[in-house]
């Protein structure tokens, strides 16, 4: 995760509406990604960078665009904690 403070979360959730006769037990929360590219607009100059080695590993040079993803439905995943 980037050390920068972000004004947004990159994982959102909602509780699907429950009908009276739904056949399956409720999933609880449904999760969806809202990655950082949705919030920045045109990239401003001078943003903090990862080291070249780290950037090659993470898939981006720019800390602000890094968004780690893991299965949010698994126990210990980002969603269920």
């Amino acid at each position: 995760m980037s050390s920068e403070k972000r004004s947004f979360s990159s994982l959102k959730s909602y509780v699907p509406r429950r009908g009276l006769f739904d056949p399956c037990p409720p999933i609880g929360y449904k999760y969806y990604s809202t990655p950082p590219n949705l919030y920045l607009g045109f990239q401003p100059p001078g943003l903090p960078q990862f080291s070249p080695q780290e950037a090659l590993k993470k898939g981006t040079l720019w800390k602000v665009f890094y968004d780690y993803y893991d299965n949010p439905y698994r126990k210990g995943g980002k969603g269920r904690g």
């Binding site: 993470k58 898939g59 780690y68």
Partner: peptide, 20 residues
């Protein structure tokens, strides 16, 4: 797969900038 997903985010960003 996480690396590839991150690249999709960057590509989306660059296409959004292309629109601008």
């Amino acid at each position: 797969l996480r690396f590839l997903r991150e690249r999709e985010i960057i590509h989306s960003q660059r296409f959004r900038e292309a629109v601008e």
